[in-house]
Design a protein around this nucleic acid. Sequence first.
DNA 1: CTGTTAGCGCCTTCAA
DNA 2: TTGAAGGCGCTAACAG
Lengths: 347, 347
Amino acid sequence: MLGGRNIGGRKRSSRQGASVTLAEVAELAEVSEITVSRILRNKGPVAEATRKRVMAAVEATGYVPNRLAGGLASAGSGLIGVIVPSLTNIVFPEVLRGIHAALDRSGLQPVVGVTGYDMEAEEHLVEALLAWKPQAMVIAGFDHTERTRRMLQASGVRIAEVMEIDSKPIDIAVGLSHRQAGFDTGRHLIERGYRRFGYVGHDWCADRRARLRYDGLAACLAEHGLGLVDEALFEGPSSTIAGRDMLARLLARQPDIDVVVFSNDDMATGGVFHCIAASIRLKEDVAIFGFNGLDIGQALPVPLSTIRSNRFLIGRTAIERILERHERPEGATIVDTGYEIVIGGTA
Amino acid sequence: MLGGRNIGGRKRSSRQGASVTLAEVAELAEVSEITVSRILRNKGPVAEATRKRVMAAVEATGYVPNRLAGGLASAGSGLIGVIVPSLTNIVFPEVLRGIHAALDRSGLQPVVGVTGYDMEAEEHLVEALLAWKPQAMVIAGFDHTERTRRMLQASGVRIAEVMEIDSKPIDIAVGLSHRQAGFDTGRHLIERGYRRFGYVGHDWCADRRARLRYDGLAACLAEHGLGLVDEALFEGPSSTIAGRDMLARLLARQPDIDVVVFSNDDMATGGVFHCIAASIRLKEDVAIFGFNGLDIGQALPVPLSTIRSNRFLIGRTAIERILERHERPEGATIVDTGYEIVIGGTA
DNA sequence: CTGTTAGCGCCTTCAA
DNA sequence: TTGAAGGCGCTAACAG
């Protein structure tokens, strides 16, 4: 086929992969490089006959375009930088899912960095990812070093700061108001008749959004002339075990608390487990309230009362908004993806 | 400082970011481009004075290297392609964690693709990621289309197929034998005196590894002259809710089953919830056994009996092995990351 | 220790 | 409808 022309004459670098280049495909198809390039990108007019010949050559050689070269020659790299603090906490993989869903078949690929809730690490990652000349950048939260902020600002590309909307973004923020969510938690529980509030939380240094919810809750209680009876804080990341242990500790100190607000569903699930194991009746003896609306909470023997944040939606929306417009607009934008109170059976 | 030299004279393309280039830094520092390049990469000998001057220029300009250009000019892109079937199932984020951990400060970045358990989608992803000329490729499982396998093979880069080791890899496999794990599950439970086995599973089309475990279990039972009394299969992805519902259904049909093996911990956790809600005594009335060894299982009111696979280790090991050697060796390698039976309290 | 030359593989701009 | 020339930003290989 194709006359079996020998394309071996060209001097080939002996480098990685020794992959087929546009030039080789062009030679085999007996057209110029640019014609092959045009056909592969569906750009500009091409004769059907030429297209067929070229596609055959592409097939025959097993050509895979080099996007490094493509990105360098044209403007965009076709990469999206994504920075999350953790993959352990299920909420971030869910944001990633949303990002992948929105990116599907766009020809763009996410390059993911994980900070481990460390702002220094984040700074290095931003620098590293910016070196790929990404089309855009998605980053969790507003907690950046001054230099990180400068780099993002100077990059000129679109920046989505996701998860929260309680601060002013560089470009666009997508998420929910954690402070308001905390406030609404308090109001909801007060309306349901609870008065003696406890709180079980995890490390705030790492998770500033948990702190915002706490602040909102405290503000709400204060507004109603109430306050937290007691709180138990775990010095580490949130986990089911931590929630279980901390609730045990809190109830040992304050047996007459009637509702405990947890920093998130993982912790709250642990609280539910403690109650089951210790034969404490949920809601009657003590009520439990979480945050996130994870699937696991709804599968518990008694469905967890909580607030559903929309992680998938956050990821998807961030990408959608960013792709709408390639250049960064003048003012900042805030997109509120909202939240809903999930009634459940534990509060 | 630096005499405030004007670097504006150079014609600048008005393209994306209009970012600072090596040439500009070089001009400002009054050295050649290659010198700046060397300094930034710590390659070759450089006078301390020059280094200082160059670093100052880098600072002053806010230079960010362009890795597209760097990758094109040198051999490696500095990208690692990673393909997973899902981010919903927590095991894959855990593998990603291992990958990120091993990549930390290596200067390599993962580019992640998600297939949704779809081999067509996987094929597109492999093609797309290969276009970035990745240094290596990590991909979950052995289930690829013929073309996918050809592309991976032809790429010449190192390929790690992770999660399982029950088939022959293209280059290197890192994971555990799911068939053997299933077999050992059977043996362990038989040793503990269980005889009337039930099985609760999820969609096998998507999750072939669950199928392998099932086959191993069945083989073990057969070897002991036993068989599954009954099984309940959920037509969809694994989830806690599904496990809960399916166990309810199974026990309604077969009240005298004494142990139920679940396709994984998510499903098994649902099973535990069903028992708690229905006041079925775990182990006495019915025993439950999972697979994965997730944290959630160990935080349950009764810790789940299960098998711990080592997802983090799988991800980390895959990267470590791959980075050991840049060229793909002749023969295939298999790395068994093993598993342990977690005794727990449900079986 | 530093610079020169010559690409990497592709795409943009112009011309035919 | 196709092609030629030049360059994207960087680095390898050799000089000096």
